[in-house]
């Protein structure tokens, strides 16, 4: 591939990672899914040094995720918004230019809304989760789309309010 188009694709990949962050911050699932290929698969994983194991805390394909989003209103939800800080660290585009992988760091803050006493608690921001996004992309006509996102979180202590994709 030409160096120039490589740089362009890298930029596009960076851009959709950030667009995904904005969409997720707003719980705008429709916008997020637009950035994903139909074969998209999402998971939240973690390594537990306590038991010495890699674990999957959550996983689903696009269909399962859509089902989950539809069910959200019927379940208990902590309404405190989550805000991500994402930095793209590496992007590797395959030789043939059809796929790519990226690793980004992610730090998520929770801006309290609900609380035992929301009179006191609402408005406060707390660190919620730290981890990394391991993303995979398909590139069609120079347009990257997510096919896989593994959110590898460091937290093993996870309290309420976190059951949608991070």
């Amino acid at each position: 591939m030409e160096n120039n188009s490589l740089v362009t694709i890298e930029r596009k990949i960076e851009k959709i990672i950030y667009q995904a962050a904005l969409a997720l911050d707003e719980n705008n699932w429709a916008d997020w899914f637009k950035l994903c290929d139909d074969s998209f698969f999402y998971s939240i994983t973690s390594f537990s040094p306590e038991i010495g194991k890699d674990m999957t805390y959550f996983s689903g394909d696009k269909k399962e995720l859509t089902g989950l989003m539809d069910m959200l209103p019927k379940h208990n939800t902590d309404h405190s918004p989550l805000r991500r800080h994402t930095s793209v660290y590496t992007i590797d585009i395959s030789e043939d230019g059809k796929t790519a992988e990226a690793v980004s760091s992610v730090v998520i803050y929770q801006n309290l809304l609900d609380g035992i006493n929301s009179h006191l608690d609402s408005g406060e921001s707390r660190l919620f989760v730290v981890g990394k996004y391991h993303d995979k992309f398909l590139i069609n006509d120079s347009l990257p789309k997510f096919v896989n996102r593994e959110t590898k979180i460091d937290n093993r202590r996870l309290d309420k309010g976190s059951h949608w994709p991070l």
């Binding site: 805390y57 208990n76 059951h163 949608w164």
Partner: peptide, 17 residues
């Protein structure tokens, strides 16, 4: 098992109202 476990007991499960 993992799928079932996560839906029922995992940290990201849904809890019914």
């Amino acid at each position: 098992r993992s799928k079932h476990y996560n839906a029922k007991f995992g940290p990201f499960r849904l809890q019914k109202m």
